[in-house]
Simulated assay, not measured.
Amino acid sequence: MLALMLNSKGLPYPDPIHPIIVHFVIAMVFFSFFCDVVGYFSRDVRFLEVSFWNMFVGAIAIFLAIIFGQLEAGLAQVYPAAQPTLNFHTVMGWSLGAFVAGMTAWRFVIRNRHPQKLPPAYLGVATVLVCLVFLQVYLGSKLFWVYGLHVQPVVETMQPGISP
Rank of each mutant, 00 (worst) to 15 (best):
G69I: 00
I110Y: 04
Q136W: 04
C131R: 10
L75F: 12
Q159C: 04
L75Q: 10
F99E: 05
F24W: 09
P14A: 12
L4G: 08
P80N: 10
F41V: 06
M5P: 01
V38L: 14
Q159D: 05
W145P: 02
V50I: 13
V78L: 14
T157C: 10
G124Q: 13
F63M: 00
Q136E: 15
F24R: 03
G10T: 11
V91R: 09
E72F: 03
F47L: 07
F68H: 08
L96Y: 04
F144P: 02
F63A: 04
P119G: 10
A76M: 05
R111A: 14
A73G: 13
D44Y: 02
L2D: 12
K117R: 13
V128L: 15
A65F: 03
A98D: 00
M28H: 05
G93I: 06
V91E: 13
L143S: 02
L129R: 10
Q136Y: 09
P119D: 07
V130F: 09
N7L: 11
P19M: 05
G97H: 11
R111F: 13
T104A: 09
P153Q: 06
I110H: 01
E156C: 10
L64Q: 08
G161E: 11
P12F: 05
Y122A: 14
I20H: 03
Q152H: 08
G161A: 11
Q77W: 11
W106C: 07
M103G: 13
V38M: 08
S42V: 07
R43H: 12
Y122C: 12
Q136P: 10
I17R: 00
F30R: 02
V91G: 08
D44F: 00
G39K: 02
I17S: 03
A82W: 06
K9P: 06
W94A: 04
W145E: 03
M28P: 01
Q152A: 14
S141G: 15
A82F: 09
P115Q: 07
M103S: 09
K142F: 06
F56W: 13
L4H: 03
Q77I: 15
V128T: 13
A101M: 13
H150L: 08
M92W: 02
A81R: 15
I20S: 06
Q136V: 10
S95L: 14
G148T: 04
Q116M: 08
P16T: 08
A65M: 02
L86S: 03
V50Y: 12
M158G: 01
F34Y: 15
G39F: 00
G124M: 12
I67W: 00
V154G: 01
V37Y: 07
T104S: 04
P80R: 05
V78W: 06
